[in-house]
Simulated assay, not measured.
Amino acid sequence: MPEVIFNGPAGRIEARYHHSKAQGSPIAILLHPHPSFGGTMNNPIVHSLYYMFVQRGFSVLRFNFRGVGRSQGLFENGAGELSDAASALDWLQAHNREAKICWIAGISFGAWISMQLLMRRPEISGFISVAPLAKHYDFSFLAPCPASGLFVNGDKDTVTSPEAVNTLVTKLKTQKGIVIEHKVMAGANHFFQDKIDDLTKICAGYLDKRLAREA
C-alpha cells in the first residue's frame, strides 16, 4: 500500500495506492467523508472498502481532498473536491491504461462528490454510495443516473434520515439497462459504528454479483 503524491488543481494530493499485477485489471477510486468533521482517506469505511477492491484484483486509489492531511489547498465544499477527484481518476487511469472496468465509491460527503464525477466520466461503470448526504446536498443532477450502482445507508442514521435517502433513490431516473439497488442496514448509524464488517459484506456481495454478470 505505497504512499503516492501527485499534482492536483490546488497543489499536491496525498494518496495510497495498490497496483494489481494482473494485466488489464479493473480500477477503483474511493472518496472520503466530510473533511470538516474529521473525514480522511483513513476513514474506517474507506479503509475497509479499499481492501475489498484489492481482494478482487483491482488497482485501487484512495486520497485526501485538498486541505486534508498532506494534500495542499483549502476545503471548498464541492467544486474543488470534485476537481481533486477528477485529477485522482486521471492519475489512476494513466497508471492503468489497459483497464476496461472502472468503479467509484464514496462515503457521506464523498458520496456526493463521487456521483458528480460519475456524471462527468462515462468510463465509470459502477458505483457504491454509502450514507449519502441526501438532506444536505442537491443530487438532482442524477437525472438520469448514467451507471448501475448501490446505495447503502443505516436505519439509525441521524445525520441524513433514511427517509431522505429513500426519497433520493426513488427520484432517480434511470436509463434503459441501468439498475439502482438500495440497501438499508438495520441498527446502523451514519458512521456504521460496529457495523463496518456487515456493510463491507453487503458492498462485496453487490460487487461480486456485478463482476460475475459483466464477465
Rank of each mutant, 00 (worst) to 15 (best):
A85H: 01
Y51G: 12
L117Y: 09
S148R: 04
H47V: 08
V4L: 07
N64F: 10
G67I: 08
R70M: 08
T167K: 15
A204E: 13
P146C: 06
A212D: 13
L82Y: 07
R97Q: 14
V159H: 06
G154D: 01
Y17A: 05
F192K: 05
I196D: 05
E123P: 02
N77D: 14
W103M: 03
I29V: 09
S71W: 11
H47W: 07
E214T: 11
F75S: 06
R210K: 14
G80I: 01
G38Y: 08
A212T: 14
T170I: 03
A94P: 09
A22E: 13
P9C: 10
S108V: 05
T200I: 01
I178G: 05
N7Q: 15
E81N: 05
I128D: 02
G67H: 10
A134Q: 00
Q116G: 11
S161W: 02
S114T: 00
Y50V: 03
D155I: 03
G69C: 14
S129C: 14
L89R: 14
K195I: 01
D197K: 15
W112K: 05
K21S: 11
D84Q: 04
T200H: 02
N166Y: 12
T40P: 05
F58K: 09
R121H: 11
A134E: 03
A10V: 10
A15V: 03
Y51A: 07
H32E: 08
S20Y: 06
F58W: 02
S48P: 03
S83V: 02
P2Q: 15
V152A: 06
V169T: 09
S161N: 00
V54K: 12
A204L: 03
K176R: 13
K171C: 12
Q175T: 11
S48M: 10
E214A: 12
C203G: 02
K195E: 14
H32R: 00
F191E: 03
I101G: 00
L172C: 12
A134M: 02
A188M: 06
L30R: 04
A212I: 13
P9I: 15
M52Y: 05
L199T: 07
Q116C: 05
K173Q: 15
L82T: 05
I196H: 01
I196L: 02
V179G: 11
S59G: 00
T167V: 13
K195W: 02
I178M: 12
G110P: 01
G149C: 06
G126F: 06
Q55R: 15
I45M: 06
D138L: 06
A10G: 10
S87V: 09
A94S: 15
M41W: 02
V159T: 13
G205H: 04
R120C: 10
V152K: 00
P122Q: 12
E163N: 06
Q23N: 13
N64K: 06
V4S: 08
K209R: 12
E81F: 10
L49N: 11
I13Y: 01
M41I: 04
P26T: 02
C145Q: 08
C102A: 15
